[in-house]
Amino acid sequence: MKAFLDPRQSRHDPRMFLKAGVPRPNPEAPGRVDRLREGALAAGCTLVAPRDNGSGPIAAIHPAEYLDFLATAHDRWQSVDGASDEVIPNVHPSRHAGSRPDGIVGQAGWHMADTACPIAADTWTSAYWSAQTALGAADAALQDGVAYALCRPPGHHAFADMAGGFCFLNNAAIAAQSLTTQGRRVAIIDIDVHHGNGTQGIFYQRGDVLTVSVHADPAAFYPFFWGHAHERGAGPGEGANLNLPLPFGTGDDGFLAAVETACGRIALFGADSLVVSLGLDAHEGDPFRALAVTTPGFSRIAARLADLRLPSVLVQEGGYLQPALGDNLAHFLTGWSTAP
């Protein structure tokens, strides 16, 4: 299996993470790349650098004014007297009303959903190449049947014009849109411990892409406001969104039961291509500790998804620094490659 990665994805080095009002070290650290690379190599993957597809495929999902914000926000922020090293909003508008402001402080609140997506000097570079990594894997999946995108920073919490939850560009959505443009009928399944709220938001009123998410119940867990079972899509997208929230502490069998339900919906949708938002933070040892999937459990999840027999792009989302992170990825990729 080809594993796509660009070294510039490690430049983004966020410092700030506000949890229950307390500043803490940001868990979306560059060291994740090293652990995940080790896992991919242990699974026998061949590392490939993505080519630069330009901004067109990214702009097919994210509007130009948002991309301009991401590219220029840090430099503009530094012109504010006494500003921090990272762009971190201190005001968030109700997006149900109001107007996009001109100043960088207001625009930070407009385009950043929370304080968990600080923008530093190299954030745009890393996010751009993370998206290119997803695009490279999407092209390879059509040729080879499956490819892994070691995307970092991750993407599934990024809406079309709003960053959030460690995410800036929605890599899975960008890959899915690229496949759709090539005439494919795409399903996205998100198996991160957190609901893929940005992905849901991007496709919520579209019926041409199916979005499915298996995740910890958001009633008391990030992203809180999205990911509930009654959210089914709207307008042309009604019925094309499926959320499968799980009780805290759910282990392998409960998670796999939800994946089985997801696979049934994907088959009924008639998908001919699959994008997997691959979160490894459902593991029992992940720092977020919401679900309890075991390392062998990731092999079982992968084998079930591989059994769909669809060209598949495996897009890395969460999974944070802990001893089993590389092994979890290796088990997932090996489970996929060795599926009957």
Rank of each mutant, 00 (worst) to 15 (best):
A324T: 14
S84N: 10
C263L: 01
D327G: 13
L321K: 01
W110S: 11
W129D: 14
H215F: 04
P323G: 11
G155T: 08
R206L: 08
H12P: 02
H195K: 11
N171L: 04
Y320G: 13
W336R: 06
V91D: 14
Y66E: 11
N328K: 01
W124Y: 15
N243F: 04
A134Y: 08
T334M: 03
F269N: 00
P89S: 13
R185C: 01
F225S: 15
S312R: 05
L305V: 07
F4C: 01
L268P: 00
Q107W: 01
A147P: 06
L329A: 06
A324N: 12
V209Q: 04
A42C: 09
R32V: 09
G297Y: 03
G98V: 10
L70H: 07
I104M: 11
D286I: 04
G254R: 03
Y222V: 14
Y222D: 12
G103Y: 03
A271P: 14
D68N: 13
P245A: 03
G56N: 02
A20I: 09
A137C: 10
F298A: 05
A330G: 10
A158H: 08
G233F: 06
C263D: 00
A120T: 11
A292E: 11
L305W: 04
D6R: 02
W336D: 07
P50T: 04
Q182N: 13
V80Y: 02
A49K: 09
P153G: 12
P247S: 09
S94R: 12
F221K: 02
G239D: 00
Y66P: 08
